[in-house]
Every structure is written in structure tokens, then in C-alpha cells.
Write a protein that binds this DNA or RNA. Structure first.
Lengths: 98, 98
DNA sequence: CTGTATCCTGAACGATACTG
DNA sequence: CAGTATCGTTCAGGATACAG
């Protein structure tokens, strides 16, 4: 669990990571559009962090304009189980509070 | 999931919460001893945060010296499912990295 | 014993401008 | 398009002293 916490450290990390639940690949601009609250710098930081932790893969598509595709790695994919657990818990709390 | 994130916001929140996986009740001093990295203030802050989110219950035991017992609420108990998901993911990553 | 009050510091965040 | 560089700011976190 400490390992998981280390990977997910930082304010927006889980939200960035969550974007890969629906789409299994995403470009920088897609993520930027999906997470308007994040400045360029923070998004870059988070992507570098997650890439460095081997949960995301970064692949430059040759050509112009430049294009970068981010995908979940084999290690990153089981993360969705954590996400669903989080979601279920939050949902239960939300229903009780209505 | 956003709800869950809001509840768990803050650097040490998940670790404090995790302490209630083994023990279902704990006193302030027990938590303080189990989490030596946390200063008094941060531990207080986290306990107040979790109490305010209705995932922990705070109960003052009458008498002297004062004694406070924290327990998981009904809402807080399903949190262990999130914890185990986190733990499994971290464990898998750890095993692969050996 | 279980906190709260106060102050201080550093890291993270955010905005802007700029580069490959 | 996809970032990096720089800088200013804010805010969570830590230490200490004190209170109920």
C-alpha cells in the first residue's frame, strides 16, 4: 500500500490516471481538454511521474505536428481495480447522504 | 471517485485511515505511536477531517486521565475494500520489480 | 492524555512565456 | 502539438508551547 501511495502522490495524480479507465490511450491534448483544471506544467509533471513509475507508456508518433500517445503499461492496467473500489465507496457514501 | 478523493485528501490521510484495518478502535496515543512520522497537529487534523467526513467516530471515555476512542463508522468500514485493492496493486508491482 | 494555538518553512502549485 | 523554463504565490506540513 505504501508503494501505491508513492505512485499516486500528488494532488491530481489519481485524476490523470483515471482518464485511462475509459480510453486506453490518450494524447496530451486530450488529457489537457479532459482536465481543464490542470496547468500544462502540472500535467507534464504528472505524466512524467506516471511514466517514470512504469504505469504509463509514452510513445512519440513520427511526423508533424508532433504527436504523443500515452498508454497504460502492463503494470498500470490493474489500477482500474483500485479505481472501481474507490468509485463504489464514494457512490455508496453519496447515496447515503441524499 | 471524486467523493473518495475529497475524503482522503491530504498527505497522511490514507495512512491514518489504514490503521483501522487491523484495530477497529484506537486511541490517540496508539495512533501516534503507530505513525511516528506525524506531528501532533497533523494527526489531530487528520482525525478531525475523517471524523467530519463521518468515516470515523470519536468517543470520549469519562475519567482521568482523559481517553478518546476512535472507531470506524458504518460508512467508513467498507473502506477496507479500497485498502485491499491498493495493497494488491502495490504488492504486484513490488513482486515484479524484484 | 488529548489535543489546540501560533508561527515558520519548503514544496507544490499556477501562470506566463518560450522552445523543439 | 507537446512540452520546458522561470518565477511568484499559496498552503499543507512541522516544531514548539500551551490548554482542557
Amino acid at each position: 500500500m505504501d508503494i501505491t501511495l508513492a505512485v499516486l502522490a500528488g494532488r491530481w495524480t489519481p485524476l490523470v490516471f483515471r482518464e485511462f479507465l475509459r480510453r486506453d490511450r490518450a494524447t496530451y491534448s486530450e488529457l489537457s481538454a479532459a482536465l481543464p483544471a490542470l496547468s500544462d506544467k502540472v500535467l507534464s509533471d504528472r505524466l512524467a511521474q506516471l511514466t517514470g513509475a512504469d504505469v504509463l507508456d509514452r510513445h512519440r508518433v513520427p511526423g508533424w505536428p508532433p504527436h504523443v500517445r500515452y498508454t497504460l503499461t502492463e503494470q498500470g492496467r490493474p489500477w482500474n481495480r483500485c479505481c472501481t473500489a474507490w468509485g463504489e465507496w464514494g457512490t455508496a457514501r453519496w447515496q447515503e447522504s441524499r
